[in-house]
């Protein structure tokens, strides 16, 4: 079996510990460290209407993970969506495809949201009025640095408000291109608080 660094041979079950010699070899091979590597963390400040990641290291990681934590927006009802940058240019055309299922604590389960041509990928389970609750969403991204592949995302979400709900779904930018940026936006609403962390899976 090939292994990046060493055979699975942890000192203690589940601890993922390495011996000093293994650490030295992993450092030498450039593989030392955990396998979920933080690319960038942004905490909302001021009154942005979007959060943009424009240095995502798509040439380093072919699979990435985005954690959107405790997002709250102001103003009237809004959702949260994703848009992608291609070679530094934000794609705003009606080219994205997405579909999601949602479940609410009110007992509703439905394939509620989908589109064969939208200007965003919807990732929130439902829209909320500003200031009434928060969104927590995690997303996986695939193939962003591969100019020969479409760019994929899958996601799971939870919205906490007077009626709570969760959702899961996926989206595609069906264009064989390099995606080098990610935008989180709330359809023009001001984001008042929250944190977003982008990670890469070590290869």
């Amino acid at each position: 079996m090939t292994y990046l660094g060493t055979q699975p041979n942890d000192v203690k079950k589940n601890t993922g510990l390495y011996t000093p010699s293994e650490i030295l070899q992993l450092e030498k091979d450039g593989h030392w460290g955990g396998s979920l590597e933080l690319i960038e963390e942004q905490t909302v400040s001021g009154s942005p209407t979007t959060i943009d990641f424009t240095s995502i290291k798509e040439n380093v990681y072919d699979v990435m993970f985005l954690s959107i934590e405790n997002f709250i927006h102001s103003g009237s009802t809004a959702n949260i969506g994703l848009r992608f940058y291609e070679s530094g240019v934000l794609e705003t055309g009606s080219v994205y495809k997405y579909s999601q299922n949602r479940v609410t604590t009110a007992g509703v389960m439905s394939e509620a949201d989908r589109s064969t041509g939208a200007s965003y990928i919807l990732i929130s389970p439902y829209s909320m009025n500003g200031g009434v609750g928060n969104y927590n969403i995690n997303c996986h991204f695939y193939n962003f640095g591969n100019s020969n592949k479409y760019s994929f995302t899958t996601y799971q979400s939870v919205a906490e408000a007077s009626s709570n709900g969760t959702g899961f779904g996926g989206g595609i930018l069906p264009q064989a291109s390099v995606v080098d940026g990610i935008q989180i936006y709330t359809f023009g609403r001001t984001i008042t608080s929250g944190t977003a962390k982008l990670f890469g899976y070590k290869q």
Partner: peptide
């Protein structure tokens, strides 16, 4: 997360399995 194994798909096959990736370590 600890990266244990990375295996490329072999072109031309119709079954793809990777063995010896799950151990008592985790």
């Amino acid at each position: 997360l600890r990266l244990i194994n990375e295996t490329e798909v072999t072109t031309g096959i119709s079954e793809f399995y990777v063995n010896n990736i799950f151990t008592d370590d985790f």
